[in-house]
Design a binder for these strands. Sequence first.
DNA 1: GCCAAATTCAACCATCTGGTTGACCATCGC
DNA 2: GCGATGGTCAACCAGATGGTTGAATTTGGC
Lengths: 112, 112
Amino acid sequence: MTLTLDTVFAALADPTRRAILSMLLEDDMAVTDVAAPFQISLAAISKHLTILADAGLISQEKRGRINWCKLEPDAMRNASVWMQGFGQFELIDLDAFERFLEAELDIDPTPD
Amino acid sequence: MTLTLDTVFAALADPTRRAILSMLLEDDMAVTDVAAPFQISLAAISKHLTILADAGLISQEKRGRINWCKLEPDAMRNASVWMQGFGQFELIDLDAFERFLEAELDIDPTPD
DNA sequence: GCCAAATTCAACCATCTGGTTGACCATCGC
DNA sequence: GCGATGGTCAACCAGATGGTTGAATTTGGC
């Protein structure tokens, strides 16, 4: 399934969303607090958060009327592994990278 | 400038373009050969290649009527550094990551 | 010189994206 | 209970995206 890389990279392509992720590095935040530094509407931020959550990059947990947003750094790992396959072979787990390539290209790799 | 991360991540968000990059890992290729495995039109592939080139992920060099496409793995490095800041602090150059955060958030960091 | 090959260009189309506003729905404080 | 707070939903809009087809352009082979 290529869906994960699709949604993760698409989510990361927007500067507002990357800024939100950076903010969440520091601490979990309520939606309103996430929205505070931005000029755009709360509804727009809410949509951005949905996109980040769909990509698995954050999780949201509603406690009372507060919807807490929490960074989920693991979601970036697959994408990071994929990227590092380019130009930095010596640094990464080549097996993991090849499994990604196979899934992406849907080719039949050297069978055992 | 946040443009680099914008264009790189946006370019990587499309599975066709990721597949093209994977193909170019093996060798430089002509546009027609890049297009061969795909069902979509040559013109569509040509557009994808333009997007990849604009993001700096590939370069194109016209020799004769052949437009050779070459992987430029360095372009992914900034994005890779950015991503690795999330959850894998011990593995990366924290200085480089902080410079990226500053540029992204446009904040005034501890001045010297 | 002419035809075919290798690409790009241009116009067009459907769909997605990021934004808006206003209505709506919980829930907290009192 | 009522008003304010926190957040999502729905409808809408402009512009980007990914695809198409057909014409145009450049170059290579004979």
